[in-house]
Every structure is written in C-alpha cells, then in structure tokens.
C-alpha cells in the first residue's frame, strides 16, 4: 500500500532530522565553550583537567571528536551533571522525564478537549455571543505570558483561598508528599503507578495536583488550537464541497462533523504537533512556579549552575520530542488528507 511507503519515508526523514540536531548541538557545544566542562566542576583540580580532556578525546582532531560524541551518545553516555552531584545526565533525564511528560499530556488533553469544540462552536455561531466570548478567551490565552498567568492562578486558587480558610487547590508538587510518605514509583508516571498499585486516593490526589499546572501550561495551546480551529472551520465552511454536501440533503450536523471537520482538522493537527514541543519548553516556567519535580525545573537549575552537560542533554531531549511530535503529526496528516500521501 502507498500509505506504508509514506510512513517509511517520514520515519527516515525524522531520523535525518535527529542527526541534524545532534550535529548542531555538538557544534554549539564546540563554539560556546570547552566541551571538557561537561565532565568537570568547580572542585576539579586544575592539574587533572588535561587528563580528563585526553580521556574524553577532546585533544583529538574535530572529526574524531565528532565521531566520539556520537558514539558516546548512542552508548548512553550523555555526560554527568555537575549540579546534580555528578549523576549521569541520561539517568536524571529518565528520572525526571515522566513528571514533565505527564504534565504536558494533561495540558495537551485540556487544550484539545476544550479547544477543538470551542473552535467549532465559535465558527458555526460566528458573531454570536458564544463566539465573542470564545474569541476573548483565546485572545487572552495567546497574549498572556505563561508565568504571569500561572502566578495569578496560584495566587487566587491557592494562596487567596487558603488564607481565607476556604477549600483550595494545592500550590505545587505532584502529590501530597507528607500524607503519602511511602508511595513508590514504578514507571515514574504518578497516575499510572497509583492505578497499577490500586491506590485510588493517591490517584485522585495526583489529579487534583495536576489541575492548576496543567491548565496554566495548556492555556496557551488551548488558545492556539481554538483560534486555529475556528479560522480553518470558517474557511472550510465556505468551500464548494460543503454546498455540495448540503445539496445532497445531509443534516447540518453531518455536514459540519463529517464533511467540514475532517478538512478543518488538517491545519489544526499541524499546530497541535508544534505545540506539543512547545509544551515541553513551556514546562520550564510552569514547573518552576508550581514546584514540579520535572525536567523543566531541573533545566532551569542547570542553567543557573552553567551545567553544560545537563543543558546539552535537555536540549537534545526536547529536540527529539519535537521531531517525534512532528512525525506523529505527519502520520495523522497522511491519514486525514489523501492528497498528502502521494505528494
């Protein structure tokens, strides 16, 4: 089938892009500073540095260095993080990654589940009250800085309610660590792990903790999806094939949800893919504000400590997530739009 060739081509393309990213991060590390700093910290004696340099091949000519860099990466040697008591970077990434992904997925679910219907309703009731409301809501989403919005949310839903002794949302963390002292992670995904262990209270507690950071992180994406969905829906509803669908005697609901939606989803899916990568970077701020023990907060700390290995590792991971998200988008795209597969 032609769909298989299409998928194969996109996967190959994605691999090429990842290689490109690896090369660029290597060049950057080469330009920005001495790559040996990935393996030393302020306590390393100056006399030891040449030996470390030689041990990692940093005194070799650059093609050899590039090859060493790649082979190290593929062998899982991503350097050690000086700011996290010299733990291997890959290990930390694996440890912190689930918290961030969990947050990003929840944010994405918020954004998609609210954004797509809002966009459709807004387009089909253009210039009516609900449309005006939706447009203000989404304009606010794209124009408010995420850190400011997150602070406001936290101030009202946590601090203000808490000082007035009202029921309030938790102000941070993934779950109530003081109540559930002995909770053990398996996969690192709290919601999943609590369900596996049949621990419903922690599951619910985890959900409650996700509401505020999830929404704060997802609001921008929600706004982007809503606006995109609205405008592409309006565009599609003007198309001739919609008139044709109506001329067949199809119900307006069928015209919108079968004939228009599929076409309008095509540009929206692109935006969703790009936004998912954006969510991981957005998590840097959200996690810092909500004390979320994820990658973002760790990356901020690494930057403050000029921990090059950690920054490099984070950059690579984000790049890989970006590429993967776009690959998935391409595949969905191919399923949605038959014209793409042969292009």
């Amino acid at each position: 089938m032609k769909l298989r060739d299409f998928i194969l081509r996109r996967v190959l393309l994605a691999i090429t892009v990842v290689f490109g990213v690896l090369t660029i991060t290597w060049i950057l590390a080469f330009i920005v500073g001495d790559p040996v700093t990935m393996y030393i910290n302020e306590n390393t004696p100056a006399e030891a540095i040449p030996a470390i340099r030689a041990a990692h091949g940093f005194d070799e000519p650059w093609p050899v260095q590039y090859f060493l860099y790649l082979s190290n990466l593929f062998q899982g040697n991503w350097g050690v993080s000086g700011s996290s008591s010299n733990m291997p970077v890959l290990e930390i990434l694996a440890l912190k990654f689930p918290a961030t992904i969990e947050l990003a997925i929840v944010a994405m679910i918020f954004a998609i589940i609210l954004g797509i219907p809002l966009g459709i309703i807004s387009a089909t009731r253009k210039d009516q009250k609900i449309d005006h409301f939706t447009r203000i809501f989404s304009l606010a989403g794209v124009s408010m800085p995420i850190f400011w919005f997150a602070f406001m949310l936290k101030y009202v839903l946590y601090y203000y309610l808490a000082v007035n002794n009202l029921p309030h949302l938790p102000g941070g963390e993934r779950y109530d660590t003081s109540t559930y002292l002995d909770f053990e992670f398996i996969t690192g995904f709290l919601l999943l792990d609590s369900l596996i262990q049949g621990n419903i209270p922690i599951f619910l507690d985890g959900l409650v903790h996700l509401i505020m950071p999830g929404f704060a992180l997802g609001y921008l994406t929600l706004a982007i999806i809503t606006r995109m969905m609205r405008s592409s829906m309006l565009e599609v509803l003007k198309e001739d094939y919609i008139t044709l669908a109506r001329s067949k005697g199809l119900r307006e609901k069928v015209v919108i949800y079968r004939h228009a939606l599929r076409n309008a989803m095509i540009p929206t899916v692109t935006v969703i893919g790009l936004a998912f990568g954006g969510l991981i970077t957005g998590a840097v701020l959200t996690e810092t504000i909500f004390n979320w023990p994820g990658l973002g907060r760790w990356a901020v700390r690494s930057i403050l400590f000029a921990d090059l290995a950690a920054i490099n590792g984070f950059t690579l991971l984000v790049a890989i997530i970006f590429v993967t998200a776009n690959l998935i988008v391409d595949l969905i795209y191919g399923v949605l739009d038959p014209r793409i597969r042969f292009g």
């Binding site: 001739d240 094939y241 044709l244 669908a245 001329s247 067949k248 005697g249 004939h259 599929r262």
Partner: peptide, 22 residues
C-alpha cells in the same frame, strides 16, 4: 432534507472544487 438530492439534485459549475477531497 427530503427534497435535496432526492427530488431535485444539482451539479455545480467547477469539478475541481466540488467533491470533498478527503
């Protein structure tokens, strides 16, 4: 809805833009 397509049907001007592409 019972009239359209069943009792009176229409073929439009431009075949390039009328069938739904997906």
């Amino acid at each position: 809805l019972d009239l359209r397509g069943e009792k009176i049907a229409i073929v439009f001007q431009d075949p390039a833009t009328y069938p739904n592409p997906v």
